[in-house]
Design a protein around this nucleic acid. Structure first.
Length: 576
DNA sequence: GCCGTTTTCGGCCCGACTGTTTTCAGTCG
C-alpha cells in the first residue's frame, strides 16, 4: 500500500528532524503519517483523480507534504528523505529495538564510533568505548549490552495466541491477592493486536508495594528492569516483557484508557480534552485542579463527549469521529458465533493426531454451537492426509448417518459436510464437480505455488471464486503472522468478484489471522460477507475462534458481516 | 509544517523514570 510506504517515510523524516533539534516540524510529519495510515483510499488514486488540491484536503497534508507525495507517486522516491538517509545511514529498526536506545543516542554512536547496526553496536560496547561518550556512562553501557542480550533471546513480538493465555494465567494469580481490588489487561493485548510487544496489567490497590513484590517473583521472571513507586517491568524467560502499574481507584478509568492506548488514539483524546478546557492524563480527567469522575472508561469518554470505544478499535483510524457522533458500529461478539465450518477430522486416518467427527461435534455442542462443518483436505495436498473423491463420498454417507442419530436423540445440532479443496495453479479445483455438488459447502484455498506473480495469483483466486460450487475462500491472502508474508494479489479485484459471485471470505483464527484487520474493513465496506473459522486440527483449537472474533472486531465487523452468526437455515441460504 | 466558531500567528499530548546531571535530556508508552 502506497499510503503505508509514504507514512513510513514521513515518520522517518520526523525522527531525523527531531534528532537535529528541529521543533514542531517532526510533529507535523507524524501527524501526516497517521492521517495517511487512516486513509481508506489510495493516495495515488486521490492524486491522479484530484491532483494536488485533493491531496491538500487530507488532514495534516499541506503544501510541503503534498510535494513529497506527488514526488513519490511520480518517481517512487522523496529526494529530501534520500538526502537524510545518506547523512545517517544506520539500521534504525535494529538499533531502536535495544531498550534504552533512542534516536539521539543512536546518532552519537554513529558519529563518534561508526555504529550502524546491532553487530557494530555490540562490538564497541564490549570494547567499553561507549561509557566515555558525552551523555553516556558506565550504567548506560551495561544497559545497552543487556539490551542486546535480551534481543538475542527474545523472539521479537509475541503472537496474540501465545500471549493471551499466558497473560490470563498471571491475571488469575494477581486477582487472588487480597491487596488487588481491581485488575485488567491493558496495552496492545487488550486491543487484541495480532502481535504483542509486552503484556500490560493495570491494578487498583491501596498497597502497590505488596502487589509489585508478588509480581516480580512470579515464575518465569528472568530480570527486573524497571521499578518505580507504582510501576514495575520484568523480562520473562519466554522472551517478552510484562509491565504492571498500580493506580488508585479514582483514577482507574483514565488509567485504563491511557494504558490501553493506542498512543495515536490517546493523543487525539487528549486534544479533545484540551478543546473542552479539560486535561486528560492517566491520573484522571481534570477541569483546572478539580478532578471529574474518572473511575471508569465510560466516565472519561463521556466527559469528552464521546461514546465508549471498544479497545479493538482504538487505533485512530476513524473511530474517534464515529464515537463523537455516537455512530460506532456494534461489533460482532464471541457469543454471536453459532458454529465453525473449517474443522479437520481424522476421517480416513483414525490413528492420526486429529479427532473423530463425533468428538469434534461434541466439542462444538459443549461450546454452545448449533452446527459444525467438517472440511478435510482433498486430493492434491501432500503435507497431511487428504481425501480423494471416493473417500469424500464415504465421509458424506457417514455424516448423514451421524446427523440422523442426533435427530433421533432430538438434539438441535447439525453437522455439515464440506471440504477444504485446493485451488490449482490455473484456478481449477482439485475435486470433481459431481462430488463437490454432493457436499453442503466447499471451502477452497491456495496451498501451493505461493510465489506467483500478482496478476497470475489474482486470476487464480478469481477463477476459483467463479466456480459455482466454491462457497468460501480459506485464508485468502496466505500470510502467517510472524512467519510468512501474504502472497502477491490484488485484493480490490478479489473483493469485486467475491461480491459479484457471493463468495465468502474467511477470517482464519489460527496463527494465520487471515484476513487481517485492514482487509476485513475493506471487505465490510464493499459489502462482502465473511466467516470466522478456526482451521482446527485438534479439538482444543476450536477455542481459537476467540482470536478470529477479535480480529474481526479490529476490522470493525458487525454480526451482519459474519455468516456463522446465522442459524442453520439462514446459513444454508447464504451459501451458493 | 499545519491549522483555526476563542487564533492567519502562535501554538503543537502528557507524565514517569533513568542516568547523567548540579537542573535536565533522553527514552518510553
Amino acid at each position: 500500500m502506497i499510503n503505508l510506504e509514504i507514512a513510513k517515510i514521513f515518520n522517518d523524516i520526523a525522527r531525523n528532524l527531531r534528532i537535529d533539534g528541529v521543533a514542531f516540524k517532526p510533529y507535523a510529519y507524524e501527524k501526516a503519517a497517521v492521517s495517511l495510515q487512516a486513509l481508506p483510499e489510495d493516495v495515488k488514486t486521490i492524486y491522479m483523480t484530484g491532483g494536488r488540491k485533493a491531496l491538500e484536503e487530507i488532514p495534516g497534508i499541506g503544501k510541503a507534504m503534498s510535494d513529497h507525495i506527488e514526488e513519490f507517486v511520480k518517481t517512487g522516491k522523496v529526494a529530501f528523505y534520500e538526502e537524510m538517509k545518506k547523512k545517517l545511514p544506520v539500521k534504525w529498526d535494529e538499533l531502536l529495538g535495544v531498550e534504552g536506545l533512542g534516536p539521539k543516542k543512536v546518532k552519537v554512536l554513529y558519529e563518534k564510533l561508526g555504529v550502524k547496526d546491532l553487530k557494530s553496536l555490540e562490538r564497541v560496547t564490549k570494547k567499553h568505548l561507549v561509557a566515555d561518550l558525552d551523555g553516556f556512562g558506565e550504567t548506560t553501557e551495561k544497559n545497552i549490552l543487556q539490551g542486546i542480550e535480551f534481543l538475542k533471546t527474545s523472539h521479537g513480538r509475541t503472537i496474540l495466541g501465545e500471549a493471551l493465555p499466558i497473560a490470563r494465567e498471571v491475571l488469575v494469580k494477581l486477582e487472588k491477592l487480597k491487596e488487588v481490588e481491581k485488575i485488567s489487561l491493558a496495552g496492545s493485548l487488550r486491543r487484541r493486536k495480532e502481535t504483542i510487544g509486552d503484556i500490560d496489567f493495570l491494578v487498583v490497590s491501596r498497597n502497590p508495594k505488596k502487589v509489585m513484590e508478588f509480581f516480580v517473583k512470579l515464575p518465569g521472571v528472568k530480570k527486573i528492569w524497571g521499578q518505580g513507586a507504582t510501576k514495575s517491568s520484568v523480562h520473562m524467560e519466554q522472551g517478552f516483557d510484562m509491565d504492571l502499574r498500580v493506580v488508585p481507584a479514582k483514577s482507574y478509568g483514565s488509567a485504563l484508557q491511557y494504558f490501553t492506548g493506542s498512543q495515536d488514539h490517546n493523543i487525539v483524546t487528549r486534544k479533545i480534552a484540551i478543546e473542552k478546557g479539560l486535561k486528560l492524563s492517566e491520573w484522571g480527567i481534570f477541569r483546572g485542579a478539580k478532578q471529574l469522575p474518572s473511575k471508569t472508561e465510560k466516565d472519561v469518554y463521556k466527559a469528552l463527549g464521546m461514546a465508549w470505544v471498544p479497545p479493538e478499535m482504538r487505533e485512530n483510524t476513524g473511530e474517534i469521529e464515529l464515537s463523537l457522533d455516537d455512530k460506532l458500529p456494534k461489533l460482532v461478539e464471541l457469543k454471536d458465533i453459532k458454529g465453525d465450518l473449517h474443522v479437520h477430522s481424522n476421517f480416513g486416518e483414525p490413528d492420526g493426531e486429529k479427532d473423530s467427527i463425533e468428538v469434534l461435534a461434541k466439542k462444538a455442542m459443549s461450546m454452545g454451537y448449533e452446527y459444525i462443518g467438517i472440511s478435510d483436505h482433498t486430493n492434491d495436498l501432500n503435507v497431511e492426509k487428504s481425501l480423494n473423491e471416493k473417500e469424500l463420498l464415504a465421509q458424506n454417507e457417514y455424516i448423514k448417518k451421524l446427523n440422523k442419530k442426533f435427530q433421533i436423540s432430538n438434539f438441535k445440532f447439525q453437522i455439515f459436510h464440506g471440504c477444504e479443496a485446493n485451488i490449482r495453479k490455473d484456478g481449477s479445483i482439485d475435486v470433481k464437480d459431481e462430488v463437490l455438488e454432493k457436499l453442503d459447502y466447499v471451502i477452497a484455498g491456495v496451498h501451493s505455488l505461493l510465489k506467483m506473480e500478482k496478476p497470475e495469483m489474482t486470476a487464480r483466486i478469481i477463477k476459483a471464486m467463479k466456480n459455482p460450487h466454491v462457497d468460501i475462500i480459506a485464508h485468502p491472502t496466505g500470510r502467517i503472522v510472524g512467519q510468512r508474508d501474504e502472497y502477491q494479489h490484488d485484493f480490490d479485484a478479489i473483493l469485486k468478484v467475491a461480491k459479484e459471485t457471493g463468495t465468502i471470505l474467511e477470517i482464519n483464527s489460527s496463527s494465520r489471522l487471515d484476513l487481517r484487520d485492514l482487509y476485513i474493513r475493506r471487505a465490510k465496506n464493499e459489502g462482502v460477507k465473511m466467516i470466522i473459522n478456526t482451521d482446527t486440527h485438534q479439538k482444543e483449537q476450536m477455542h481459537y475462534i476467540e482470536y478470529g472474533v477479535s480480529q474481526a472486531r479490529r476490522g470493525w465487523a458487525t454480526k451482519d458481516d459474519i455468516i456463522n452468526t446465522l442459524s442453520v437455515e439462514e446459513l444454508l441460504k447464504s451459501l451458493k
